[in-house]
Amino acid sequence: MSLAEIPLCVWRTRGHDFAFRGRNIRYWAAGQGEPLLLIHGFPTASWDWHYLWQPLSRRYRVIACDMLGFGDSDKPRDHDYSLIEQADLQQALLDHLQVSQPVHVLAHDYGDSVAQELLARHGESRFDMASCVFLNGGLFPETHRALFIQKLLLSPLGWLIGRIFDRCSLDRDFSRVFGPDTRPSESELDDFWSLIAAGQGHHILYRLVSYIPERLRHRERWVQAMQHGRVPMRFINGAGDPVSGRHMVERYRELVPDPDTILIPAIGRYPHIEAPNLVLRLYEEFRSGLYGLLPVAATSRVVQDSAPANHPFALSTTIQNGSC
Rank of each mutant, 00 (worst) to 15 (best):
S244H: 08
F20A: 01
S113Q: 14
D181C: 11
H96P: 01
I196D: 07
G31A: 06
G69Y: 04
K151E: 14
D66N: 03
Y110K: 04
A130W: 04
G201L: 09
R221D: 10
D258Q: 13
S169R: 05
Q54C: 05
P295H: 08
K75S: 04
R163G: 06
R61T: 04
V231L: 08
I6L: 09
Q116L: 09
G199E: 07
T13Q: 13
G292H: 09
N310H: 14
I39W: 05
T44P: 00
G137Q: 04
P295M: 07
S113I: 07
G137E: 03
F178C: 09
P257K: 10
R269Q: 12
A29K: 07
T143S: 12
W11S: 00
P141R: 12
S210V: 11
A120Y: 09
P76W: 13
M248P: 03
L205F: 15
T182K: 02
T299Y: 05
P55H: 12
Y206C: 09
A298T: 06
P295S: 03
S306V: 01
G33C: 11
Y252M: 03
I164K: 05
A239E: 04
F42G: 03
D190R: 13
L135S: 02
G245S: 10
S2G: 00
H108G: 02
F134G: 03
I196V: 15
D74Q: 10
R207Y: 09
G240L: 04
R121I: 01
Q91I: 07
I273Y: 01
K151L: 13
S73A: 05
G69N: 05
E186P: 00
A19T: 14
D241G: 05
W47V: 00
S288P: 00
E5D: 15
W11H: 02
D171Q: 15
R230P: 00
R163P: 00
F18I: 11
R176L: 14
D171R: 13
A309K: 01
I264G: 04
L89D: 02
W53C: 03
V256M: 06
S125W: 10
G162E: 05
D181V: 09
R61Y: 13
A19R: 13
H16L: 10
L280F: 14
Y283N: 00
R26L: 06
R183A: 06
L52I: 04
W47P: 03
Y206F: 15
I63V: 12
F20M: 01
L135R: 02
S306A: 12
Q91F: 10
N310A: 08
D95E: 15
I204W: 08
A87M: 08
D109V: 02
G199Q: 13
R145V: 07
H203Y: 14
H311Y: 09
Q150G: 01
D78E: 15
Y60V: 04
P242S: 11
L255F: 08
P35C: 13
W222P: 01
L68Q: 07
Q150L: 06
H108V: 03
V302W: 09
A298L: 06
P76L: 11
Y211W: 12
K75N: 01
P308W: 14
V10D: 14
Q227W: 11
R176W: 05
A87Y: 01
F286Q: 03
W193S: 02
H104R: 15
